[in-house]
Amino acid sequence: MLKQLFPVKHVVGYVASLVLTLIALVVLMDLPAAVEIGILAVTAILQASLQLVMFMHIGESSEKKSLYINIAFAIFMALVTIFGTLFIFVWGWYA
């Protein structure tokens, strides 16, 4: 019963997400900023994909191609908005 209620895939996903959270905590130590941002980016993206694939079963739908395109477009849009705005207001600025 327990095995039935707690499938391996879900348990592994859960443990992995906890581990990734703990790994992200290393940025609280004194590392170069670029490395820290890199660690955060990698762990966050891994966690997100973990949820997407292992818990949300993005691949099980018959529409998976459309779903991947949808998520890709959303990420494109998110990155463009974030980095575009930073480009305009911060990095690309001179007065």
Binding site: S61, E63, A74, M77, A78, T81, I82
Partner: peptide, 27 residues
Amino acid sequence: RNKIFGFWLFMGAEIALFATLFTVYFV
């Protein structure tokens, strides 16, 4: 099936929504 598909699209919109909030925060 339509509803599940539609909800995935809605989550795409939610990604855009939170991305905008993150943009505001980062700036």
